[in-house]
Write a protein that binds this DNA or RNA. Structure first.
Length: 486
RNA sequence: GGCGCGUUCGUCUAGUGGCUUAGGACGCCGCCCUCUCAAGGCGGAGAUCACGGGUUCGAAUCCCGUACGCGCUACCA
């Protein structure tokens, strides 16, 4: 295995949507695989029938595809180690649990839920350090077991843990971790419905799929000794483990739905670019060289190294995500933004057919450094799409004076005479007009901005005017002179 | 309760015994630029490196203990 290329997997349980913590796990696996020329595998861990959610798997795959993490083997992508959906691999789990049974490393357990409950209560009363199964069914004779089996008594299969010695393993991120075997419970391997538990399925599949590195969340660290024992009992080579720190809520608890959005789809729907999400998520627990923080996926592949992943959990903090989103918008070519902006317009009250691509590209250019989201093009500068209906009263108070209307009248006349309605001409004309009126240019600039945009902020005035074009500007100026009264 | 993992500015982090009066980024504040708002440039506030002991000439960095946080403790993953 030493000479083989790494094979890693992202193994989510399809519970409805792709969690951002899951995305981070998927991303690190992906980066590790791509960097090393290995394979990135998607495996669906749907062994809990009670938690089945219609369409969850499809949704998960779709989100992964949207964000750009393509997998080499998995559902819908052929590979040599399929099927990649655990509910379709039941024969494997049965076969290998039988092997464990024969070796004496696992045993049938017919205990009822009630007995288990009582056992736990009893142990609690006795103040035992921890509640564990008491191996009651291990002492059942072959005859008793067969009789129960024949009579259809419900059963599970448990791992027969020898409570002596210690289990230790090396973790790339946490170095050596050690557990006392006496603290490891006789974990259920096969549930009474015939499905395997995570622990069994995970070990069997990782072995069968020749997974070399198990990169997963820290919540699995505590159950890793069970997995190590399983590898040992089967006589299989163990993968290398890397347990990632958790993503946290602002209060430092494990990132959860209660305290904000956790689904990648939520962020997509809010208008975050996939590039920004990837970039941000990558930085939660990992950092590159030379304080570089802006990364494209390809650059992450180049620079990523699993050894540099942090040990401590990271709070998911939206402000930095916002900043990265604006940075990625600035980086994107205008043509690409055009495509996204048109979609945004289609979903708005504005009429897409009113605007040419050429016109939209100019808006994109002029607003680019002012937007955080694509929808900001509409929110921050609606005046490029429709004439203002009303005017910001704060700006009127600040910039509009009794004499302003007559000043604007003069300017409108001069603008009307212009043949070339471009930035330079507009600026020159405005300055000349100001001189004629013996006022500062600002006394014209601000009212004009208000008149054509309805608000007091935005790109340079002459850029706005040129973009809007002569007829529109004259109309807006005249209308403002009528409507703004002080 | 038990077991495990963790602990550097509000947040994400750099840092692996002397280069550190602890560096960067987001956010916040100020100045410059400027027709406004951004962007950009410059600067500022912000971390006694959880705490207490050691080891060492010297520790954020090594060791031990304590505290706190988190995870696991299911026939869920």
């Amino acid at each position: 295995m030493i000479n083989d290329k790494p094979r890693v997997r992202f193994a989510p349980s399809p519970t409805g949507y792709l969690h951002v913590g899951g995305l981070r796990t998927a991303l690190y696996n992906y980066l590790f695989a791509r960097k090393s020329g290995g394979k990135f595998i998607l495996r669906i861990e749907d062994t809990d029938k009670n938690r089945f959610v219609e369409g969850a798997m499809e949704n998960l795959i779709e989100t992964l595809k949207w964000i750009g993490l393509d997998y080499d083997e998995g559902p819908n992508v052929s590979g040599d180690y399929g099927p990649y959906i655990q509910s379709q691999r039941l024969d494997f789990y049965q076969k290998y649990s039988n092997e464990l049974l024969e070796k004496g490393k696992a045993y049938y357990c017919f205990c009822t839920a009630e007995r288990l409950e009582n056992l736990r209560e009893e142990q609690k009363k006795l103040k035992l350090p921890q509640a564990m199964y008491d191996k009651h069914c291990l002492s059942l004779s072959k005859e008793q077991i067969n009789k129960n089996l024949d009579n259809g008594v419900p059963y599970v299969i448990r791992l027969n843990v020898e409570k002596k010695g210690t289990v230790l393993f090396d973790d790339i991120i946490r170095s050596r971790v050690e557990f006392d075997c006496s603290t490891i419970d006789d974990q259920v391997l096969i549930k009474s419905d015939g499905y395997p538990t995570y622990h069994l399925a995970n070990v069997i599949d990782d072995h069968l799929m020749k997974i070399t590195h198990v990169i997963r969340g820290e919540e699995w660290l505590s159950s890793t000794p069970k997995h190590v024992l399983l590898y040992d009992y089967f006589g299989w080579e163990k993968p290398i483990f890397a347990h990632l720190p958790l993503l946290l809520n602002p209060d430092k608890s494990k990132l959860s739905k209660r305290q904000g959005d956790v689904a990648v789809e939520d962020y997509r729907d809010k208008g975050y670019l996939k590039e920004a999400i990837i970039n941000f998520i990558a930085l939660l627990g990992w950092s590159g060289k030379d304080n570089k923080e802006f990364f494209l996926l390809d650059e992450l592949i180049q620079e990523f190294s699993i050894e540099k992943v942090h040990k401590a959990g990271a709070v998911f903090n939206v402000e930095k995500l916002n900043w990265l989103n604006s940075e990625h918008i600035k980086y994107k070519p205008n043509e690409e933004i055009l495509y996204m902006l048109k979609k945004e317009i289609e979903n708005s009250n504005f009429r897409i057919e009113k605007y040419t691509d050429y016109y939209l590209i100019q808006i994109i250019d002029v607003m680019k450094e002012r937007v955080t989201f694509i929808k900001d093009y509409l929110m921050l500068s609606p005046y490029f799409f429709e004439a203002p209906i009303d005017y910001d009263s704060n700006v009127i108070d600040k910039r509009w004076r009794p004499e302003t209307t007559s000043h604007l009248k003069k300017l409108t006349e001069n603008y009307d005479k212009l043949e070339h309605f471009n930035k330079d001409q507009l600026e020159e004309t405005l300055k000349i007009t100001a001189e004629e009126l013996q006022i500062g240019a600002g006394k014209l600039i601000h009212p004009v901005r208000l008149a054509v945009s309805g608000i007091g902020v935005g790109p340079g005035l002459y850029e706005i005017l040129e973009l809007l074009s002569k007829d529109e500007v004259i109309v807006r100026l005249k209308r403002a002179m009528e409507k703004i009264k002080i």
